[in-house]
Nucleic acid binder design. Structure first.
Lengths: 249, 249
DNA sequence: CGGTCCCTTGACAGCCGTCAACTACCGTGG
DNA sequence: CCACGGTAGTTGACGGCTGTCAAGGGACCG
């Protein structure tokens, strides 16, 4: 049976978990659930982070708004993603986290987080892997914004999101939901909405993506990867911790 | 007495360490030292990371080279910086790390790292803080590349580097060493060398920076911060873990 | 059926890249 | 002492990718 807990699903991209590991992670998502509507802030720059948030459903983004109104989305969280293991160490948030769609979050108190990492080394390793992958994703965004053209940048982002959603079982064949507006894609890619629109038309024209009504379809993933210089190595999805696999199924 | 171990110096931006903590960290930098010449790779994309590297002196950068030769520097390491706590969890590097200047590194074996984090909770917290700050820096680069103009981008980077160097005691008044070429600044900011050159002239013309012969001077830091929309909050340098302070001096 | 949000399109401008040449600096060696 | 070569920095001309401004179309909703 495939787990419906997206965090378990995701961590098993790294290593197989034991039945006990899963129980622990399931307890974690059940304890304190928070629902947030679309386009709301989960936490704002300057506030004190108190819990670790785990996305159970919906899309969330990190963003920063500059004094003059310019806004940059620094990353998306999809189900299974954790907003910074151990954020609570910092006194205040240096950026905001806001929802894109309606969202359900599991809010994990500090004590629970610490208890788990003390008692469950395999989970701890998997969470470290998660942290390192998130850092790698952030770096890849730096590369995109610094070096890739608008065409590559947008295509690359769609590739990444597709693979990340696939890792938590949220794709069906070549398609997945993509509940973000072109304005949000613009804020994420550092482009204007006008240019995002034109570039999407180019991507469609090249037959690389089908994007309509909140649904994304990638008819030929390798072709899109080639066209956008996409190398999936930074997602570290090939079960790199398999030597840690549990044996009990 | 101020420590000459830059890691200690840096972690004390977070919380005061005990004499024992310092001894542990001093042992860590002494054990295995590696010297690398300028413009060499410390580790290359695709290789297996085996140790955690800590910069003792000199400048290092993370970078990624795309298939067609475009290169993006994703971040600089200066003395006191750690190249990814726990990298060894990953099977292969998704980017390269190369020196800018001649460098001395402390290579910390996995076992030592794990031993320390098990036995010394204050150090562990401080290292987590380091990790979170690094992530915040990477996000800020995303914001710079996505939203800031060339002028703001370069000025912002100089601000950041100055403050980071100051945190490890490598500034003297308003000046510090800046041993990077304009070509490297270009790779870091996603601009062309020509444009970096022109933009630096603008920054000089505005009296915001003095940059010559590998030395940077910032006559009016608040002014530069204003001009580049620089908010230092993401560096979390205000001793946020002071409640953990050791009492033994 | 009016309003709002999102997407789309056209005209125009500007930031920034490319190309190419030139200068400055520095260490080496004749 | 000067020639030499290599690296880093500088400058000018030109072009193009991408932003801005503005207007219109389509879908959904109260």
């Amino acid at each position: 049976m495939t787990p419906n807990n997206p965090l378990i699903r995701k961590l098993e991209q790294f290593a197989r978990l034991s039945a006990d590991d899963r129980r622990v992670l399931d307890r974690l998502v059940g304890e304190r659930v928070r629902r947030v509507g679309p386009r709301e802030d989960v936490i704002r720059e300057g506030e004190k982070p108190r819990v670790v948030s785990l996305v159970l459903s919906g899309w969330v983004c990190r963003y920063k708004q500059l004094a003059d109104g310019r806004r940059q989305i620094m990353g998306f969280f999809v189900p299974g993603d954790l907003c910074d293991l151990n954020v609570y160490i910092l006194r205040e948030m240096d950026h905001s986290v806001g929802t894109v769609t309606p969202v359900t979050l599991a809010e994990v108190p500090r004590a629970v987080m610490e208890e788990i990492t003390l008692a469950h080394p395999r989970i701890t390793q998997a969470l470290w892997w998660e942290t390192l992958v998130n850092a790698a994703i952030q770096r890849e965004w730096t590369v995109s914004l610094g070096q890739r053209t608008a065409f590559e940048r947008i295509g690359h982002m769609l590739c990444e999101l597709f693979l990340r959603l696939r890792a938590v079982g949220l794709t069906e064949g070549e398609r997945c939901d993509l509940p973000i507006t072109q304005a949000e894609m613009a804020d994420a890619t550092g482009l204007s909405t006008v240019h995002v629109n034109r570039t999407l038309q180019e991507l469609r024209g090249a037959g690389l993506v089908v994007l309509k009504g909140g649904a994304l379809s990638i008819p030929d993933l390798p072709a899109l990867q080639d066209a956008t210089l996409f190398n999936p190595n930074y997602l570290h999805l090939d079960r790199e911790g398999r030597h840690l696999d549990a044996n009990d199924g």
